[in-house]
């Protein structure tokens, strides 16, 4: 399935294909509207074990355990979910050198209508930088596969987590009133 207007793969098809190509079989998440098509797609594909968690920390813990047991995993969340994570990242994922693959659907910028979302959005990059976690804000479909594929390989090879911030420029974001 491709974008009907352009004939190109959609962002979520590219993410799904790249996870598969890198044998990332576990996907845990706390939902976000923009992530809906990706969440639906991983549920519909028997390659993946996918389920929701009650908190993003929990989702991170599960993926960390799975990695230690030999299975690669990704966590999907909204910007506000990332806001709950500094302790789990700083006291588990980073010091244990676990290549957690963290996808953050970016709310809070480029047309945000909720001030709280806008503020939590500004905490994301400083938190990542202060813990020293690699991150990429992805804005373009033509760069998506390259960034995600290469970064997953780097995360595994260097035993380091990586965060993919999915910009509204890539996903369309959430529109006021929509």
């Amino acid at each position: 399935m491709t974008d009907t207007q352009t004939g190109q793969a959609t962002w979520y098809e590219t993410v799904l294909a790249t996870l598969k190509a890198n044998d990332v079989r576990l996907v845990t998440y706390v939902p976000d509207r923009v992530l809906t098509p990706l969440i639906k797609a991983v549920h519909e594909d028997a390659f993946f074990t996918a389920f929701p968690c009650t908190r993003e920390e929990e989702a991170i813990g599960i993926v960390s355990g799975a990695w230690m047991g030999g299975m690669r995993g990704a966590v999907l969340m909204q910007t506000s979910g990332f806001g709950t994570l500094p302790n789990a990242l700083a006291s588990l994922v980073a010091p244990c050198q676990i290549p957690a693959l963290i996808f953050v659907s970016q709310r809070g910028t480029l047309g945000e209508f909720n001030l709280g979302q806008a503020l939590v959005c500004r905490t994301v990059q400083p938190v990542l930088d202060s813990i020293g976690i690699e991150s990429h804000t992805i804005t373009r479909q033509d760069e998506l596969a390259f960034i995600v594929d290469r970064s997953i390989k780097q995360a595994v090879a260097t035993q380091a987590p990586v965060t993919f911030i999915l910009s509204p420029l890539l996903t369309g974001g959430k529109i006021f009133g929509a």
């Binding site: 576990l26 355990g65 990695w67 700083a90 588990l92």
Partner: peptide
């Protein structure tokens, strides 16, 4: 688990999924 208070069960669950 040295930090991440509360995550022993999620970590164990992850290991259980993988193995």
């Amino acid at each position: 688990m040295l930090g991440s208070m509360g995550l022993a069960i999620p970590i164990a669950f992850g290991v259980a999924i993988a193995q």
